[in-house]
């Protein structure tokens, strides 16, 4: 009786394992088998004449390729990967320089008392260089003081202006976003900024020289 019970139990367990194995391993393979999948189209059309149809298609492909190529700027453009914190500078559609950068830290800074919040991130999309400048002075916004736990000074207060912290050059992208240098080189390659794109000194100089006002900056 006990022997029969154990045999039944063993058959049941083996059966369940067999069922599981079939569902996981065998059935998907049966499903994918070429014997089971009927040809989605039974094309045997070698005899169909190719001639003019082929020429027409080749022309259409060339036109489409030309249309697609028009989207790529012919002058210099800049690409920023905010996930890996890498930049790519293209000149005449050739990669001219690449390296590390720092981009937005993807953070919401919430002020408890006022329920006001600041969002620090580098927005994806296409921007253009609005203006360029040398030796920029950083006009510190309110959040720079709030983040440091300091009282916010009035507008135009001398404590708001800081020279040297943005490096030797700046390229303004609009909405408060810029490409500039940094004093904090140890943070390069990390998501640490308030939305701007920070570059190392040599890279910044090369990018400053290559990009003109109106050059496109692709951020993703």
């Amino acid at each position: 009786m006990i022997k029969h019970f154990f045999i039944t139990l063993a058959v049941l367990i083996i059966g369940i394992l067999f069922l599981g194995a079939m569902i996981i391993f065998v059935i998907p393979n049966i499903q994918e088998s070429a014997y089971i999948l009927p040809a989605v189209s039974t094309a045997q059309a070698d005899s169909i004449p190719v001639g003019t149809e082929k020429e027409k298609l080749e022309q259409e492909i060339a036109d489409l390729q030309a249309e697609l190529d028009k989207y790529t700027p012919t002058d210099a453009f800049f690409v920023v990967n905010t996930s890996s914190n890498h930049f790519y500078l293209y000149v005449k559609n050739e990669l001219s320089r690449e390296g590390i950068c720092s981009t937005g830290k993807n953070e919401r800074l919430v002020i408890d008392s006022t329920k006001r919040e600041y969002v620090f991130y580098t927005p994806a999309g296409v921007r253009t260089v609005k203006s360029k400048g040398k030796n920029p002075v950083w006009a510190k916004p309110d959040w720079a003081f709030i983040e440091d736990g300091l009282p916010v000074p009035p507008k135009g207060d001398p404590s708001r202006f800081e020279a040297g912290s943005l490096g030797a050059y700046k390229l303004v992208l609009g909405d408060g976003y810029m490409i500039h240098g940094t004093l904090y080189k140890r943070f390069m390659g990390q998501n640490v900024t308030h939305g701007c794109i920070r570059l190392l000194d040599d890279d910044l100089e090369a990018v400053y020289k290559a990009l003109e006002i109106g050059s496109k900056v692709y951020i993703f």
Partner: peptide
Amino acid sequence: STVNPELFRLMKDKSWLESRV
């Protein structure tokens, strides 16, 4: 449904570019 293999290859190229445009 029946397409010459050579044309089919070109049509795939066209479809790829059309979709990207």
